[in-house]
Computed example of a mutant assay.
Amino acid sequence: MPHDFNQRIIEEFRAHHGRLSGPFEGARMLLLTTTGARTGTRHTTPVGYLPDGGDRVLVIASAGGSPRHPDWYHNLLAHPRVTVESGVFAYEAEAVVLRGGERDAAFARAVEADPGWAEYQQKTDRVIPVVALHEIAKAGPPEVSADSPGEAIRLIHDVFRRELALVRAELDRGNGSTLGAQLRVICLTLCQGLHNHHQGEDAALFPQLADRHPGFASARERLVREHERIAELTGELRRAVSTRDPAAARAEVLRLTEELEAHLAYEEEQLLPLLEAAVA
């Protein structure tokens, strides 16, 4: 993409915490910052990504089917340590180029989810690389691009709301006979993300708030019960995904959406005043 076009996307992405308008509205995008192979200068590029479970995401060096690999790919070959911005989270990652069967399987999943990837491959003689970005673990809570703890909670909640909306749309676009491999990975990644978020709240955030605000006790009990309920629902979604039945998966996604939306609304109602008071 031309530099000016890229820069406009980067500015909109950062200003709206990962939300984009126009042709990229609703797309899974991230900002990838690499170190120049020859210059050592840092370069930021908007790229599409695929959730891949655990601590990694996949990016594809398609360059729209160009005969040449994109500059960011050459950069990470020389300097695999990169920075990833999701719009809400920012973290350091190690870039690993997938090889052989692992690359082919990942690319096939991408094509199944979006045939446009196959069109790019048909336009070029090069084998389009697939790169895994492995988050480099660090102590403490994740780095959230927010100005206050309350805003951080809202933004994290919006990540789950947005992802569920994307999953529902992707299920609606499916062929109706089976659940695609990449969509299965996306559902499982969502389930794991909810588990990690709620585990962090139960273990760290809620005890801190309870120590400072004794009146939070009853709300905490309800929130913990709701976390247990969400865990039951994500378990049902995992089971539905394992059957590869899109109708069963969609039913579970709708159930999860309804109950999670109610939970997030109640949690924001209870937590945000306490979190904002702490920084007032």
Rank of each mutant, 00 (worst) to 15 (best):
L256Y: 00
L32H: 13
E112K: 00
Q182R: 05
H16A: 11
T33A: 00
A169H: 08
A181Y: 06
A90E: 11
T257P: 00
E25R: 12
F24L: 04
V97I: 05
E92A: 07
A278H: 09
A61I: 03
V47L: 04
L77M: 11
A27Q: 10
S21G: 10
G176S: 02
I60R: 07
E252G: 05
R38P: 08
D125P: 03
I10V: 03
Q192L: 05
E102W: 14
Y49H: 13
A277C: 07
L20K: 08
L188V: 02
G174P: 00
P149Y: 01
I156H: 03
H197V: 13
L256I: 01
P2N: 12
T33Y: 00
V88H: 10
A78V: 09
Q121V: 07
P214R: 10
A106C: 07
R238Q: 14
E226F: 01
P115L: 08
R225N: 06
R250F: 03
D211T: 06
S218F: 09
A248F: 05
A113K: 03
E170Y: 07
A118Y: 01
N196T: 15
F89A: 11
V241K: 01
M1P: 07
P149F: 02
H213S: 13
G193E: 03
L274R: 04
W72T: 04
A132R: 00
E261R: 13
L50S: 14
Y91P: 02
T257V: 09
P273E: 14
A247F: 08
G100S: 02
G101N: 15
A90Q: 12
A280F: 14
Q192R: 08
D104T: 15
R212Q: 14
S145F: 13
E135A: 03
A137Q: 10
S218K: 06
D71A: 02
A219R: 02
L237K: 03
E269S: 13
A15Y: 06
V84C: 14
G100M: 07
L171C: 10
A277E: 12
E268P: 09
E163W: 05
A231D: 09
G235E: 15
D245T: 02
E267Y: 04
L76D: 06
L133D: 10
E228R: 08
D211I: 14
R255V: 15
E269V: 15
A93G: 11
S86K: 04
L194V: 11
R126I: 05
E252V: 00
L233V: 07
E258T: 07
A280Q: 11
E94R: 01
I186C: 03
E163I: 03
L155D: 12
P46K: 12
L272E: 12
V84D: 10
L260W: 01
A278F: 02
A262N: 14
L30S: 14
L166R: 14
E201H: 11
L194E: 12
A217K: 11
A231T: 12
D52Y: 02
D4V: 08
A262P: 01
A63S: 03
N196R: 06
G100F: 06
L164E: 15
R168A: 09
E221W: 05
H16R: 05
E267C: 04
T39H: 08
A95Y: 01
V279W: 06
E11A: 15
T234L: 02
F13D: 02
A169Q: 15
E163H: 06
F13Q: 04
A203S: 10
A251P: 00
G48F: 05
G26A: 06
A93K: 04
L31G: 04
H198Y: 09
H69F: 02
E258V: 05
E12Q: 03
